[in-house]
Nucleic acid binder design. Structure first.
Length: 712
DNA sequence: CTGGCGCTAAAACATACCAT
DNA sequence: ATGGTATGTTTTAGCGCCAG
């Protein structure tokens, strides 16, 4: 450091600029993402000038040069030509919590570093440097030196001394033995300077410079005035005493200064820096922590930041910068590609969002802007890691969408919507795994699919089905429907298929049903129509019982009425509970007349809870706990009332380790019903699907079991 | 030796216009 | 929408000068 030279001279700073340029030259030769560049700037470039800045005030011209270097590197990267400066520099310099990238503001940083000297001036009782400074400039009071009035050779200390006012305003005085604090002139009671509060009293006091230790004795305050107080001055005196009455008395400690914006009162350069930065930004706490506290990689975080600032280089943004392009959203090919369209409202993107919004809230409505979305993207409840996982969702979706969009532009390749969804989910899982975050909702760990014909229990871990442990059973929604039909038939109720009659309203509220005859309808179509109705009955009225079904206890259950399409009203009683219980206890089938064909097989079948437990037991010991804690119901039958609760209860009783059992079901009935189809459509769009399908001839050759073999 | 004054160059600030 | 550049205006640091 060139001591003794002109502090204003540029040459002190030449070295810094040179070093910066050297570093940049190396970095520019390699490809770095925006996130990488931010990291490098924050960690390396910002610390280079710190040493010099801790003594010398930095000239604006140098700040300009350094800022230009850092700015160009940030936006230009390794490109030769100039890049677009997407976000203005003062915003970039804000701290991350309030919407910037945390690049240091050199001026403010310099100010904070220099203020440190003023702080040390107060903390250090006998330091040589303090003696010298004191000797040269004289002490104004015990807190700081006199103002610098000389004009030559005093630049450094003058700059530092000029910072005193602002530091003083942000600190408070902690009175110890009262040897430094002036009663009238220092703001020691926290309410302001007494001179300014009580000017009349001040004007008649004997010694304006008295210290607290001179005015205070253990008996109380000892304020001496030059004359007796007039009547109108007494009121002021009373008020004044009221204000300082709470003074706890002096101690043996020396008086000291405390930082005003933190309760421990310790000054640090960083605190002052952050305070100064906030002051020039105003208070605008945004949704920014959602970004920075997520588990996404740094480059994705920075990209998300760009999107949330609505400054991502979409076609709209490019048009604003004067590039003429025909703008069509690459995903839906319909609307203009604006920031909010591409990342939120485009119908392709909206579908990806729906994957997650349906979990969170059935009544989710998409906010207008990307920044608004981040503000309301809050997960209530859940563990800390779950919250972090949830915060990552927007980042992940935007990142994948952006990559997809770029791929379509530059490589001409398109992914299907299902593949995009798949990518989002796997990417999310990957990031979480990297960060050792155990996401519990992540790729639903356990899928119990209650399909129409077949019930399959398949453990899923880390996105892979554990094939050994898959259990299937022919008991499914279809059988339940059949049972219901038979059971009703037994009671003399026949479901008329919708096509077989015509219903007219003769008078308001009164209907006439005319039977029609279609001799050519096949039996299977009739059955299909009956089933459609029965399955509606099933879904409307049936309810999984809390306890295993038995005839005696349910014989007196109140009935529920259901109106058939032809106008008959049927009363469904015990069957409401009996039918669903077949899922849990297949042997019940035997008791239903007309289902004898199933009775034999049913006896050997296990109930749903048993299947789940068996399946889990076939899995690795380590993951069993996890599997128990997230069991997902999918498929149409799963929307049955109370099914979730019943399954949870049964599992709790039967699970061997008394593990935490949690059964999940998508809150949205439609989604739950069709989740199997969604899954199918994702599967069909995967690259590996090629090996999973086979032709009709193959099917005929190998038979139905080939399905299980080919696509486990 | 000190304080005040005024000059000058440089810095800082403001504005307009252009490029990306 | 942002930064760069040119240009003009205002402020300030640095310094000499001079009276007291």
């Amino acid at each position: 450091m060139p001591l003794g030279s002109e502090h204003k001279a540029g040459k002190i700073w030449d070295g810094i600029i040179e070093k910066t340029e050297k570093k940049l030259a190396i970095w520019k030769s390699q490809y770095l993402s925006l996130g990488g560049r931010v990291t490098l700037i924050n960690s390396v470039l910002d610390s280079l000038p710190t040493y010099v800045m801790s003594l010398f005030p930095i000239p604006s011209s140098i700040v300009k040069v350094l800022d230009a270097l850092r700015r160009n590197f940030l936006w230009q990267g390794n490109k030769i030509e100039k890049g677009f400066n997407l976000v203005k520099w003062p915003v970039v310099q804000q701290s991350k919590e309030i919407g910037g990238l945390g690049v240091r503001n050199l001026k403010v940083h310099n100010m904070s570093l220099l203020s440190k000297w003023l702080w040390r001036y107060n903390q250090e009782e006998q330091a040589l440097w303090k003696e010298i400074i004191n000797h040269k400039y004289g002490q104004e009071d015990l807190w700081c030196t006199s103002e610098v009035n000389e004009t030559y050779g005093v630049g450094v200390w003058r700059t530092i001394r000029n910072l005193w006012e602002s530091l003083n305003n942000n600190s408070k005085i902690v009175v110890g033995r009262g040897d430094k604090t002036k009663f009238w002139l220092d703001d020691w009671c926290g309410n302001g300077i007494l001179r300014d509060l009580f000017p009349i009293l001040f004007s008649i006091c004997t010694n304006t410079n008295s210290k607290i230790e001179e005015m205070w004795s253990p008996q109380g305050w000892n304020i001496i005035f030059r004359r007796l107080l007039n009547d109108w001055e007494i009121d002021g005196m009373v008020e004044c005493l009221g204000l300082i009455g709470g003074f706890p008395g002096t101690t043996l400690e020396p008086d000291r200064l405390a930082w005003g914006h933190h309760k421990d009162g310790v000054f640090s350069v960083n605190r002052l820096y952050n305070w100064g930065l906030k002051r020039c930004a105003g208070r605008s706490i945004g949704p920014w922590n959602t970004i920075w506290k997520s588990v996404a990689p740094a480059k994705v975080k920075c990209f998300t930041w760009l999107v949330a600032r609505k400054k991502c280089l979409t076609h709209e943004a490019m048009q604003k910068r004067g590039i003429n392009i025909v703008s069509r959203c690459l995903l839906c090919k319909e609307a203009l590609e604006t920031n909010k369209h591409l990342f939120m409202h485009c119908k392709v993107t909206a579908q990806v969002w729906a994957l997650f919004t349906s979990i969170a809230n059935e009544y989710w409505t998409m906010p207008e802007h990307t920044s608004d979305l981040l503000s309301c993207w809050i997960k209530r409840g859940g563990s800390k890691s779950q919250k972090r996982w949830w915060r990552t969702v927007p980042a992940c979706i935007w990142w994948i969408i952006w990559k997809e969009r770029n791929q379509r532009i530059f490589e001409g390749k398109e992914c299907t919507i299902q593949k995009i969804k798949w990518k989002v989910i796997t990417t999310l899982g990957f990031w979480c795994k990297e960060q050792d975050i155990e996401e519990e909702i992540q790729l639903v760990d356990f899928i119990g699919s209650l399909g129409g014909g077949l019930t399959t229990v398949a453990p899923v871990h880390d996105g892979y089905v554990l094939q050994k442990a898959v259990c299937t059973s022919p008991i499914g929604g279809g059988i339940l429907t059949d049972c219901l039909i038979k059971s009703l038939e037994q009671k003399g109720i026949t479901i008329k298929p919708r096509y077989s009659f015509k219903r007219k309203e003769i008078r308001p509220g009164e209907f006439q049903t005319v039977d029609l005859d279609f001799p050519d309808t096949t039996e299977s179509y009739k059955l299909y129509c009956q089933r459609a109705i029965a399955s509606d009955i099933k879904e409307c009225v049936s309810r999984a019982p809390d306890t295993p079904y038995d005839d005696s206890s349910y014989s007196n259950i109140p009935t529920t009425s259901y109106e058939l399409p032809d106008g008959q009203t049927i009363e469904v009683g015990a069957d409401r509970f009996k039918i669903p219980d077949i899922l849990f206890n297949p042997s019940l089938v035997q008791t239903i007349p007309g289902m004898e064909s199933f009775a034999e097989t049913a006896a050997s079948l296990r109930g749903l809870p048993q299947m789940v437990i068996d399946s889990i037991n076939k899995c690795d010991v380590d993951i069993r706990r996890e599997l128990f804690s997230s069991i997902l119901l999918a498929g149409g039958t799963s929307s049955m009332q109370q099914l979730k609760e019943r399954l949870e209860k049964d599992l709790l009783e039967e699970s061997p380790q008394a593990a935490r059992v949690k059964v999940l079901a998508s809150g949205n009935a439609t989604e739950r019903r069709f989740s199997v189809w969604i899954g199918g459509s994702i599967l069909a769009s995967l690259g590996s699907f090629q090996q999973m399908w086979f032709s009709k001839s193959e099917y005929e050759e190998h038979g139905a079991s080939y399905v299980q073999r080919k696509c486990p």
